[in-house]
Computed example of a mutant assay.
Amino acid sequence: MTTVNETYAHSLENADLRAFYEAAGFAGRVGWGERPAILVIDMAGAWADPGEQIGSDLSAVSDSIVRILEEGRRAGLPIIFTTMAWDPSLAEIGEVVRRKTPHSELMLHGTERVALRPEMGRRPEEPLVVKPRASAFFGTYVDAMLISAKADTVIVVGCSTSGCIRATAESAFNRGFHVIVPREAVGDRSPSAHAANLFDIDARYGDVLPEAEVLDHLRALPQTHPRAAEE
């Protein structure tokens, strides 16, 4: 016998739950705009090293991101990386954040914990934004950089699905951007949190798509940046 909990278990594959949300007026399709940009969220040591306090094995996620970055660079798309870090004084973190997330006290400027993983291959023209909170838009100039690049779509990749990915997707949605989340290119230390938040992002903030579909779209884009043809 199917229980209520099984019927409404969060999963992108749960057709009953999707139908329930659609009937309530959720889960419309955002689709692609005309000018995508890629936001790579927090692919740094603290999150991507399983030996770290908040780390987990994101090797498959990293591989997916690298493939997406390759096609994005070929097309000359704007690419923005983020990490989270604070001054050793800890004053800018704030008491509430320190109480709720004590691990924040270890995320200090200049440490390996907040340095990007080398496989991301960040290039000099790709900015690295140090954000003070979960969303890439909070307390940063990410929205201004996207507007300057005339981007209307953000491809959000990285970690963690239940935290910084969801927060960034919500902020982008609230600012009127098309939000695309390649499902293989985001990860979380908790599989259940990952599944639940992928469903919620897809229902509320953007379109969660297979990596293959995202790559096909990027490959069909013309090269728009003068450096793209030379690399």
Rank of each mutant, 00 (worst) to 15 (best):
E92N: 06
F138K: 14
V96D: 10
R123F: 06
C159M: 02
R122G: 13
D87I: 05
K131D: 14
R123H: 12
P132R: 11
M145R: 14
R117A: 05
E125A: 10
I79S: 08
I80T: 09
D143A: 15
V156N: 04
A151W: 05
G76Q: 11
K150T: 08
V157F: 03
M120Q: 14
P124I: 04
A136S: 15
P124M: 01
G76M: 05
T82C: 06
T82Q: 12
V156Q: 02
V142K: 06
T161G: 04
P102H: 01
E71Q: 13
I80G: 04
G121I: 03
R73N: 11
E119R: 14
M145T: 11
S104E: 02
A115C: 08
L90H: 08
V157P: 05
L77A: 02
G76A: 11
R123M: 15
V114P: 07
H103V: 04
V96K: 07
G158V: 06
V156G: 06
E92C: 06
W86E: 07
S148M: 02
P102A: 00
G76I: 07
M84R: 04
E71W: 01
E71H: 09
P78F: 02
P102Y: 00
S104V: 04
P127E: 12
E125I: 10
V96G: 07
T82A: 07
